[in-house]
Design a binder for these strands. Structure first.
Lengths: 160, 160
DNA sequence: AATTAGAATTAGATGCAGCTAACATTAATA
DNA sequence: TATTAATGTTAGCTGCATCTAATTCTAATT
């Protein structure tokens, strides 16, 4: 049971360690999160909407959807609509919440451009613990606006 | 000159957009950062030390080193030692600093396990702006210990 | 100096996620 | 209904980063 917590790995290395343990790849997470967003209104979404929303070509979306279907996150039949299963819905909800927590956090510390991109990059595979810590941070900052604004005004004076 | 700042992409999508602009891949960054660490003491490092430090097999390290050599980040001849070029040294220093900023940040918000792993995951390709914001946050927290400890003690009461 | 042990390299395979081009299906319209 | 337009699928290629197995080179030991 090697304990790797003090060892370095490349990004790829971490990915591979997690792939065993039933987790989704970053790519799958991206898709599932977006499918959840798109399903929000109508309860379903289409291949082309998904591809369009993620700026990806339809064949790429198609492959991923088949993969997610095999993992029982959604139901899909050829030429049909994409419907999340309860499991997919749950996970999608979590993924979106995670995304939003990180986005809020970035805004709090003053990021203004590239928020979407940076959120996207950070959100995958950060540990539950880290997410929780950031979540608490965001929560605390929301409850105590004066507290975070201390920092924010310091920062504003730093950079004109 | 498409402006994509409000559009969604998958992680892969963002990676590809940046690949054009002469930047290093995450993998290359991981290696360069580690090479910089390892060179610190002796001024050079070896293939096997590098592979060992990153928990990767020698052939993987070998390929990457050749790539970095082609990009003029280091000098390497067959069976020889790995020496950073001035450019590689500069960049390596930056990468390590980035890593340390993120690591400090995670500690400040209370992350204790998996720090290394999460830092690794976050550090690649977050924008300069985000890094700067986090840097200022860390700096402010260091200068004003009472400020951050307000949050920390709130958090401690939350989770026993 | 010859042999052996340890490092480094090459070759070739794998998996992920993207793409284009070509083909198939469904839906809309004339 | 027949044709066309729009969507979806399949096949096959690319690039990145990993691996194993086999080979080559260097260094150490006798």
């Amino acid at each position: 049971m090697a304990d790797h917590s003090n060892e370095f790995f490349t990004v790829r290395g971490y990915t591979m360690q997690n792939q065993d343990n039933q987790k989704l790849t970053s790519g799958m997470e991206d898709y599932l999160e977006m499918i959840f967003r798109l399903c929000g209104e109508k309860g379903y979404t289409r291949m082309s909407d998904l591809a369009g929303a993620l700026n990806v070509q339809p064949p790429s979306a198609h492959k991923m959807v088949k993969k997610l279907a095999k993992g029982n996150y959604l139901n899909y039949e050829k030429y049909g609509l994409i419907h999340l299963t309860p499991a997919g819905w749950e996970l999608g909800k979590e993924l979106l919440a995670r995304h939003q927590t990180l986005e809020k956090f970035l805004r709090l510390v003053g990021v203004s451009a590239n928020i979407l991109e940076d959120t996207e990059k950070i959100e995958h595979n950060i540990s539950k613990e880290t997410l929780e810590c950031i979540f608490h941070f965001v929560r605390y900052a929301e409850i105590n606006p004066h507290w975070i604004s201390e920092f924010q005004s310091y920062k504003q004076n730093k950079q004109p």
